[in-house]
């Protein structure tokens, strides 16, 4: 494969080769899982057909895959952005929760504002919440007090408990019969959905985030500086690039992305703040970001794949009585196959 791409050398054929390789990998993963399905006495053919029909085979199914992708792309960006200078942000989950917390405060506090004012405000608060939460870890790192890996991880637990504290305590909806949830968002604070589906305006955040990420990294001086920092901090520092400034900035922006994911989930999906806000979206985003080494197109592809497996897994449970545990194994198999590929680029990154 390597020789082929080098010989032809054009961008298009390299992309085509990448697509073929990616498709081949997925095919291999599906083939391996087919063996698992056979072990469960199921017909893999029927199983895959059922998954296809219920996900990509209908507008509804496809829209639901997109719904699932929105927070994953954002939490993947939350990891990929700081990763450009080798910061390991494990804290997407916590940043998502704090983003949702801030957004909820805004939605309930300024509930009487019109939507055109309230929505940007709530989104901004979501971004700010996640960003500030991550910034704390950035400060600890820049000061040399604690590595961001450990502080972001520890602060995940704190963030989730903080949200629990608010929804079990001061923010508990008096109308909800004391169930742990905030009052529902006013209509003006609910992100509008698109095309009669559950795909919501949060998709815009994800798309804009991806585009900006791509443009900044590949087309600007900042991107150049960040790459320099990522390769050799000492050399970069000697050239007058401030590592500390980038640490703070990138942690803030990364956290803000996760915060937006939290804002989208709480506003468009749940409609009120709950401790069960996220089934580990931050960790899945972490996985997506590192499996693709932060490439924007890779993030989209991996988020798509994982959403597809999740949605498809439910179908397998329904139609083929496959236990949820086997879906985890399917996920792992696909990931293993993708990870264990020989990287064809020859480069280190």
């Amino acid at each position: 494969m390597d020789n082929v791409t080098r010989a032809t050398g054009t961008v298009r054929s390299r992309r085509a080769a990448a697509v073929i390789r990616f498709g081949g990998l997925i095919g291999l993963a599906l083939a391996v899982f087919a063996l698992v399905l056979l072990a469960f006495g199921q017909n893999p053919l029927r199983a895959y057909a059922d998954i296809f029909r219920a996900t990509l085979g209908s507008p509804y199914g496809f829209s639901e895959v997109l719904v699932k992708m929105i927070p994953l792309v954002l939490t993947a960006l939350a990891v990929a952005i700081p990763a450009k200078i080798w910061l390991i942000n494990v804290g997407g989950e916590g940043q998502l929760f704090i983003g949702a917390l801030f957004a909820t405060w805004g939605a309930l506090h300024f509930g009487s504002l019109p939507a055109w004012l309230l929505l940007p405000l709530v989104s901004l608060l979501g971004f700010l919440g996640g960003g500030l939460w991550a910034l704390l870890s950035g400060i600890l790192r820049a000061k040399g007090w604690a590595s961001e890996t450990i502080s972001t991880l520890l602060m995940n637990y704190v963030a989730i408990l903080l949200v629990s504290f608010f929804v079990f305590g001061p923010w508990k909806d008096p109308e909800s019969a004391n169930y742990p949830q905030s009052a529902p968002f006013p209509d003006a604070a609910v992100l509008p959905s698109l095309f009669e589906s559950r795909v919501h305006l949060g998709a815009l955040f994800a798309i804009v985030g991806l585009l900006l990420f791509y443009v900044v990294m590949s087309r600007t001086r900042w991107g150049l500086e960040m790459r320099a920092l990522g390769i050799n901090q000492e050399a970069a520092r000697r050239n007058g690039i401030s590592a500390d400034r980038y640490i703070l900035l990138l942690m803030f922006i990364g956290g803000g992305m996760a915060g937006l994911a939290g804002m989208g989930e709480v506003s468009a999906i749940h409609g009120q703040l709950r401790p069960s806000l996220s089934p580990g979206l931050g960790y899945t985003g972490f996985l997506i970001s590192w499996i693709t080494m932060g490439s924007p197109s890779g993030i989209v592809a991996a988020a798509f794949l994982i959403s597809l497996i999740t949605a498809g897994g439910d179908i397998l449970q329904m139609t083929h009585r496959i236990p949820a545990a086997a879906i985890h194994i399917l996920m792992a198999l696909v990931l293993f196959v993708v990870l264990a590929r020989r990287s064809g680029t020859g480069g280190k990154k």
Partner: peptide
């Protein structure tokens, strides 16, 4: 980092 999380999924399911 990614392989570790994949291993976790596998362990949970298995």
């Amino acid at each position: 980092l990614a392989s570790g999380l994949a291993l976790m999924f596998c362990g949970v399911g298995l």
